[in-house]
Amino acid sequence: MTVLGILLFYFLAAELYVYGFSRNGSLTDYDYILLLGANGDLTSTVTRDRASNAAKAKSRWPHAQLILSGDERRGEVAVYKILLAKEGHTDFLEEGESKNTWDNMQNSRPLMAQTDPRVLIVTSEYHQPRALAMARSLGMKAEAFGEDPRRYKKALLFFIKERFSNLKYFPQMLFHKIF
Rank of each mutant, 00 (worst) to 15 (best):
L156E: 10
G20P: 01
H127V: 04
L157C: 00
G37T: 15
M112K: 03
E97S: 13
G5T: 04
N53A: 13
G96C: 12
P171A: 14
N53T: 03
V122L: 05
K86I: 07
S26R: 12
I33M: 01
A155M: 12
T115D: 14
K168G: 01
L34T: 12
A131H: 03
F179N: 08
P149Y: 12
I67G: 11
T45S: 14
A144Q: 07
L42D: 03
K81S: 13
W102D: 09
F158Y: 06
I33W: 08
R60K: 09
D116F: 05
Y19M: 06
F170H: 10
R151D: 06
F21W: 13
G75D: 15
T47F: 12
L7G: 09
D116G: 12
A51P: 04
A57Q: 04
K153D: 09
E162P: 05
D31I: 07
E95G: 03
V46S: 01
G25Q: 05
A14G: 06
A38K: 08
S98H: 11
T45M: 12
A14C: 05
I121P: 07
E147A: 15
Y152N: 00
L167P: 02
T2I: 05
L42I: 04
V122M: 02
T101S: 05
L12W: 00
D71W: 08
H89L: 11
V122C: 04
T2C: 08
N24F: 01
D71E: 06
V77T: 11
D49A: 06
T45L: 14
L111C: 06
Y30S: 14
K153M: 06
K58N: 03
D49Y: 10
E15N: 15
S124W: 04
K56P: 11
L7Q: 09
K153F: 05
V46C: 00
L157Y: 00
K58A: 06
K177V: 04
M105Y: 05
S26F: 10
F145D: 00
L35G: 10
T2Y: 02
T47G: 14
Y169K: 04
M134Y: 00
L7S: 09
L68W: 14
S108D: 09
L156M: 04
T115I: 10
L157Q: 00
L4S: 04
K99D: 14
H63T: 01
Y80F: 15
A133V: 01
Q65M: 12
